[in-house]
Structures are given as C-alpha cells and as structure tokens.
C-alpha cells in the first residue's frame, strides 16, 4: 500500500438523494499518470474534491501519499496540489504576484526566484507584470498549472486540465504533464476527452454511474473488446492534424492579448 501514492477504497458520496459515488476503488502508483475518465456528472470532480480534502466522503477510505484524507487532512494538503476545472487565479494581481503569493503561502525558499523560473518555463515571462484579467484562456491555464507546481508536491490533481483550451495549448499542457510524471510526480487527472486519456495516462479508469467500471492500461482496456478485424481504410488526416499543420507549431499565438476576448468568452 505504501508503494501507492493514492489509494481509494469503497468511497461513497451522496448529495441529498443523489448518489454520486457508490463505492469507488482504485490505486495510483507513484510517479504515474492516472486518468479518471467519465462523462459529465459521473462524479470525477467529487472524487478529486474528496482527495484534496475539500469534501468529506460518506463512507470508504482514501489515502494520499500515505495520509488519510479524513484523519490527516493537513498532511494531505502538504503533499498535494489541485488544479480545478476553472483556472483558479487572482485576476487583479499580475501573473508574477500570483506565483509569489502561492510560493510565500507554501513557505518556499526564494519565492521571487521560484516565480521567475516558472514564468520562463510556461512562457509567461513577457506577461509577468500584467494583470491576469488581460490574459487569454491558455495563459490563465498555464499560470494555473504553474501555481500548482510550486513547492514540488509529490501528488498533483488536474481536474479537466484542458477544458476550453485550443489544440496547441492542449498539447503544451500534455507535454507539461508528461514532464512532471517523468520527474516522479504522481498525476491524477480527470477528463471527458478520450484522446487525452489515451495520450497521457499510464492507467485509465472509467467512472460510470458512481462506480469504476473498468481500470487498466490502454492495451488492457482495448482487450475488453472483441479482437480487431483487419479492414483497409484510407487514412484521412483529422481536423486537428490539419489545423496544427497549417498554423505551424513555432508560434504559440496564445500570448497575443487580442485573443483574450475570445478566450474569455469560452470560459
């Protein structure tokens, strides 16, 4: 059990009459990326909120980094970082001020240096001194994720990290997540995009009607279906392939403040 960064057993949660979780079990190995896949309202966010000590479960146990979420919440909070569905950033502060604030609250050495390093890593150096309210959706999300990395918590929860992002930024976020796991961070991410789970996750669990109905590697999940028939189909590029090919990958474009309006509308 100690080899697992996250261990969940028999987790139940109801909101009044609505039984959102009906006994959820899963484990996440250290340093791996685990995707919780499910449609809207499947209970993914509820699981993340319980694991990040924002919500109490009705029944069952959950441990994060060896600490029980119900009895040792303060230790759990030392070990985790949460990036919620909506970029939880302070609009009135600048990007740098947001990072410095979180670094100070986490009692990290040299908060200014930590902030500058993260700004550079997430290509936000140029926007560092601007108020976050002028940022585009992609920039906000990058800042949001950067804030979650401060203090190098061993476990990171990403709740639908790419919702509302354009395909390029999505790829950037994916690369960032892979890099994290490469450094030994355990990542639990929720998503409703199948391709996201396919691209990123070492293991995928499908949450449906309050239970985990499948849990395995991509190959294991594929084997649940009857063996593939060999058919010859012309390989058409997906729209995403076309989009990424014609706009080129050299310029992220997301730093352009003129895109802020559209990104805001997406939110």
């Amino acid at each position: 059990m100690t080899t697992q960064a996250i261990h969940v057993q028999g987790l139940e949660k109801s909101y009044k009459e609505l039984r959102v979780l009906r006994g959820v079990d899963f484990g996440v190995a250290r340093g791996s990326i685990f995707a919780l896949l499910g449609s809207n309202g499947a209970g993914k966010t509820t699981v993340v909120r319980i694991l990040s000590t924002l919500l109490k479960s009705d029944a069952g146990t959950a441990t994060v980094d060896g600490f029980d979420v119900a009895t040792q919440p303060a230790d759990v909070r030392e070990s985790i970082s949460l990036t919620g569905q909506f970029a939880a950033v302070d609009e009135i502060l600048t990007g740098r001020e947001n990072l410095v604030l979180v670094a100070r609250l986490r009692r990290v050495e040299g908060p200014g240096q930590v902030a500058d390093d993260l700004l550079a890593r997430f290509q936000l150096t140029d926007a560092a001194g601007r108020r976050v309210s002028t940022y585009s959706g992609g920039m906000r999300r990058r800042l949001d994720i950067a804030m979650s990395l401060i203090g190098n918590p061993p476990v990171i929860f990403l709740d639908e990290p790419t919702t509302g992002l354009d395909p390029q930024v999505r790829v950037e976020v994916w690369n960032g997540v892979k890099e994290l796991a490469g450094q030994g961070t355990t990542v639990l991410l929720t998503t409703q995009h199948l391709d996201e789970a396919e691209h990123l996750a070492d293991r995928i669990a499908i949450l449906h009607q309050g239970r985990i109905i499948a849990n395995g590697t991509l190959d294991e999940l594929k084997r649940l279906l009857p063996p593939a028939k060999v058919e010859y189909v012309e390989k058409q590029p997906t729209l995403e392939d076309v989009f990424l090919a014609i706009i080129g990958n050299d310029d992220t474009g997301a730093d352009d403040p003129t895109t802020a309006q559209t990104a805001k509308e997406q939110r």
């Binding site: 990040s52 924002l54 303060a74 909070r77 949460l82 950033v89 609250l105």
Partner: peptide, 13 residues
C-alpha cells in the same frame, strides 16, 4: 466562484 477559495483551502495553510 473563481475557484481561488478552493485553491487556498487545498493548500497547506
């Protein structure tokens, strides 16, 4: 509403 309240609540503070 912005979620920053929850971010703070999930931090070791």
């Amino acid at each position: 509403q912005s979620g920053i309240f929850e971010r703070f609540q999930s931090m070791p503070i």
